[in-house]
């Protein structure tokens, strides 16, 4: 199973939750808080749904409580993908 990359995550964020005009998602954002990127909990829930569909994995909504940045989100998702759940 392919791991989720930052590039793919940014694409999914753009498509499922839109993009804040004041933020450069193409920049170094891996450790920027989602809230500072303009994404609220619902935007992340929508994104989580897209990742589950596109990557064929089952992710717990609780993941969103701990994943505050793109890097944390990727780590949490890729752990599940690697486990082949």
């Amino acid at each position: 199973m392919t791991a989720l990359t930052l590039e793919a995550l940014v694409r999914i964020l753009r498509e499922s939750a839109g993009e804040d005009e004041g933020v450069d998602l193409g920049g170094d954002i891996a450790d920027t808080a989602f809230t500072d990127l303009g994404y609220d909990s619902l935007a992340l829930l929508e994104t989580l749904g897209r990742v589950q569909r596109d990557y064929g994995v089952t992710l717990d909504d609780d993941l969103l409580a701990t994943a505050q940045t793109p890097r944390q989100f990727l780590d949490a998702v890729n752990e599940v993908i690697a486990a082949g759940v």
């Binding site: 939750a17 804040d20 005009e21 935007a43």
Partner: peptide, 8 residues
């Protein structure tokens, strides 16, 4: 509208 509002 801002881009964040369009999908919702």
């Amino acid at each position: 509208l801002p881009g964040r509002l369009l999908p919702q």
